[in-house]
Amino acid sequence: MPAPEINIHHVAKLARLALTEEEAVHFHAQLTSILSHVDQLSHHDLQAEPSAHPTPVYDVVREDVPRSGFSQEEALQNAPRRVMNQFQIPKVVE
């Protein structure tokens, strides 16, 4: 099986993860080796329904009743930057 083609910069952008050029080379090599290994799955006849999780529990909903959550202060206590009791992010709109 040929090693899969990975565009590491594209994947890193999808993951919102900046990489140094050194990291890109390093991770590209490691991912190629890991993916070559996991590619063994394609050699098997996997005749089975896919399972997303191990227990037969589906569509769990809670009672539709109001309940309290964090106070504003609790929600904001870990914010790296806050302004006027809100989370602050870099400017998005010019």
Partner: peptide, 11 residues
């Protein structure tokens, strides 16, 4: 990858 892995998981 992902769908195959989910099938293997069932097996």
């Amino acid at each position: 990858y992902y769908l195959k892995a989910q099938r293997a998981r069932t097996l």
